[in-house]
Design a protein around this nucleic acid. Structure first.
Length: 720
DNA sequence: GTAGGGTTAG
């Protein structure tokens, strides 16, 4: 046997061996053998390049490739593939174009890589040119090439739907030598008829054969483009073509049932996955977590997560997002910590998922820690993260920081605008919020449903009635957004608080959607403030019609009866509540001191420092009484004597938290308190005066907004 | 050659 044929035999044996048996070292040994027998002939070098390319050894492949004067097809193919697998897609395409300029015809096995590169670089025109080239060469009947094309058009369709870029112009099709053997009028006509944005269907129709990958690709494409029914139809068609859905199919189908909030169908898929042993798959795992979370079945999400034999970063991100989106914030934070302990690196998605937990729980110290992590990780220019930071700082009471983050953002999208508008709205900066909204419109960013909630929140917290009417009447006209429950609620709230109770009643009665108990409740609390018991009773009836278990309504009615000294009716309401087993949520305030959250419940004496807190409150009371404070006992409605009422006011949770805050922080420190229900009028007056006597800024967040107390005044100007 | 996770409200 000649040395050259020996080398060829060696290569053949090598290539035929199962991949698991091949090692990089063996490849290098083969290279040495080759050098001895067949030094640097173009064909032997190409074989070596292809072996190195198989191991993804780009440097080795390149070194050999560059030694060739006119590389043959195999060499080009290997380099293009190697570039593509290394993620160097631009190089891969440049190489392809260069090869064409050498007059070399590509073969079918090279196109999947080249097409993938076009997808990655989001270059549709180049992709279409290459498709033209494929048709001219008559290679569009190749299954792998066809699948790659399907994927390309599907991806570009979703890119177009999301308004993505079309990439730079780069036209191989026009530049192709006209002497191509297969370049005839027929193929040119075909190219014209196939290439276009609706090409997924056309490519699919022309494919002489389809396999599971073809179906999966089209199903995924439809699912990602929101064509859910079409995707499901394809799954059925796949079944009739005797192809079984695999893990790829399932992970495209699960998000559809998540979107449909159809937990029964989702469970069916879960069952199928278990029967076919796909349930240990990463992809299926995170799709299942997400599907259950979307269907408000967070326990099932957690179960899927705990049963996963292996987890990657996306599994962690999925379960964290699932918890936070379902309001299980503590669990979300716990899992985030576990993720760090498990040495799984958090990514941009992790931060934008976890940040709302800090915003909701008002844990500013944690939010700041995460912000530090974000800056160190270089994630701070990510628009999702920046928006979540704006929101977190605003909700934690630091609207200035929220503004800085917002101003630093290079590009503002609708969500970031909405977050900053809502921030100002919650802090009672109504005019700032509205001018930001106008700025957003001027910037050409279209508001959505949520943006208008922010606008109305701004109007309602600042008492901007006329502006609110203008926006209410303009929202469907200017932006095609129909007012929903939240928008109606804000309008009803504004009318009610302005004392236009009957107008509010008419407004709610004429809503184009059925009013809920909570909308009527807005009016009921206005009735209480404006002491209109008669209308209150009428409104309460409406509430109990749609929501017989509405705790707030019972409490409000009982309080209203008490305020008019109709104790019997007040007691009746409370007895009714007891019978029905409805319990009023206890008032609760919390304050963060030295990274620890301290919780206070109204009247609770269990805090270890209670005696000192009580003494501090007594001292503060004396001081503010000197400033003219008179307890407003109207606010507390128990059927008890005046002295006791004074004591009950005294033990409101926000006052306990405040006294504790004053005791445990250095003079001059801003105090931030969060409360689960609204601050009462008496506490509001007291805290205003306390801010003056202790010379501190006090920020209280209740369940609907912020109050900034300073020098005896509040940012809400007593309108809240 | 094909698949999964994110920000604003509630």
């Amino acid at each position: 046997m000649t040395s050259s044929s020996m080398a060829k035999t060696l290569v053949k044996t090598f290539l035929k061996a199962p991949h698991s048996l091949k090692t990089k070292i063996q490849a290098k040994q083969l290279h040495a053998q080759f050098l001895k027998t067949q030094p640097y002939s173009p064909s032997s070098t190409s074989i070596l390049i292809s072996i190195y390319a198989n191991f993804n050894l780009l440097q080795h492949s390149l070194l050999l490739f560059n030694s060739l004067n006119s590389p043959p097809l195999l060499a080009w193919k290997s380099i293009i593939k190697c570039y593509s697998s290394s993620g160097l897609f631009a190089n891969s395409l440049t190489c392809f174009v260069k090869m064409r300029s050498f007059g070399i015809h590509p073969d079918h096995s090279m196109f999947p890589f080249v097409i993938k590169a076009c997808v990655f670089l989001k270059n549709l025109r180049l992709g279409e040119s290459i498709h033209g080239c494929i048709i001219r060469l008559g290679l569009d009947f190749d299954l792998f090439t066809g699948n790659a094309l399907l994927n390309m058009y599907a991806k570009f369709q979703s890119l177009q739907l999301k308004g993505g870029s079309k990439g730079f112009a780069f036209n191989v099709f026009d530049g192709m030598p006209k002497s191509d053997e297969l370049c005839g009028r027929l193929t040119q006509e075909r190219a014209k008829s196939v290439i276009g944005l609706d090409s997924v269907t056309k490519v699919l129709e022309m494919m002489p054969q389809r396999d599971v990958v073809s179906y999966n690709t089209v199903i995924a494409g439809n699912a990602q483009n929101g064509l859910y029914e079409e995707a499901l139809r394809m799954v059925r068609e796949m079944g009739s073509a005797n192809m079984k859905p695999d893990s790829f199919t399932l992970s495209s189908v699960l998000p559809i049932f998540a979107e449909y909030v159809d937990v029964m169908k989702g469970k069916e898929i879960h069952g199928y996955a278990i029967r076919h042993l796909f349930d240990s798959d990463f992809y299926i795992g995170s799709s299942l977590i997400d599907m259950y979370a979307n269907c408000a079945r967070i326990e099932d999400s957690c179960r899927v997560f705990s049963l996963l034999p292996k987890r990657d970063d996306i599994s962690w991100n999925s379960i964290i997002a699932a918890c936070v989106q379902n309001g299980v914030f503590d669990e979300g934070l716990k899992l985030f910590r576990r993720m760090l302990t498990a040495k799984v690196k958090p990514r941009d998605v992790t931060f934008s998922s976890i940040m709302p937990a800090c915003a909701y729980l008002t844990t500013l110290h944690l939010g700041k820690q995460l912000h530090g992590y974000i800056i160190r990780g270089g994630f701070d220019d990510n628009v999702f993260i920046a928006s979540s930071l704006v929101d977190m700082y605003a909700k934690c009471g630091n609207i200035k920081a929220a503004g800085w983050i917002f101003d630093q953002m290079e590009h503002h999208d609708m969500v970031s605008w909405t977050a900053i508008i809502m921030g100002h709205a919650l802090h009672g900066h109504g005019h700032d919020a509205l001018s930001l909204f106008k700025h957003m419109e001027k910037d050409g960013v279209k508001p959505n449903y949520v943006s208008y909630i922010a606008v109305f929140t701004a109007c309602s917290h600042a008492g901007l009635m006329d502006e609110a009417w203008r926006f209410f009447n303009g929202m469907s006209q200017n932006h095609g957004i129909k007012p929903g429950l939240e928008h109606y609620a804000a309008m009803a709230d504004l009318l009610g608080r302005a004392g236009k109770l009957n107008e509010a009643y008419e407004f709610i009665s004429r809503m184009h959607i059925a009013p809920t108990g909570s909308i009527w409740s807005t009016l009921l609390s206005a009735c209480r403030v404006h002491k209109n018991l008669e209308l209150g009773e009428k409104v309460a009836k409406e509430i109990f019609k749609v929501d017989p278990e509405n705790v707030g309504a019972y409490v409000l009615m009982s309080n209203m009866y008490a305020a008019s000294r109709r104790w019997k009716e007040a007691a009746k309401m409370r007895i009714f509540m007891k019978k029905k087993g409805i319990r009023k949520e206890p008032a609760c305030s919390w304050i963060e001191v030295k990274n620890t959250v301290h919780t206070f419940i109204s009247g609770d004496k269990s805090h270890p420092l209670y005696d000192r807190i009580f003494q501090a409150l007594k001292d503060l009371l004396e001081q503010i009484e000197r400033e003219g404070y008179i307890p407003d006992t109207n606010e507390d409605f128990h059927d008890v004597d005046e002295e006791q009422k004074k004591y009950l006011l005294f033990s409101h949770s926000e006052r306990l938290a405040l006294a504790f805050g004053i005791l445990s922080t250095p003079a001059g420190t801003t105090i931030r308190i969060t409360k689960n229900i609204r601050v009462c009028v008496d506490c509001h007056t007291a805290i205003k005066l306390i801010s003056k006597v202790v010379q501190r800024e006090i920020i209280v967040r209740d369940n609907s907004r912020f109050h900034h107390f300073k020098d005896g005044k509040c940012s809400c100007r007593d309108y809240w």
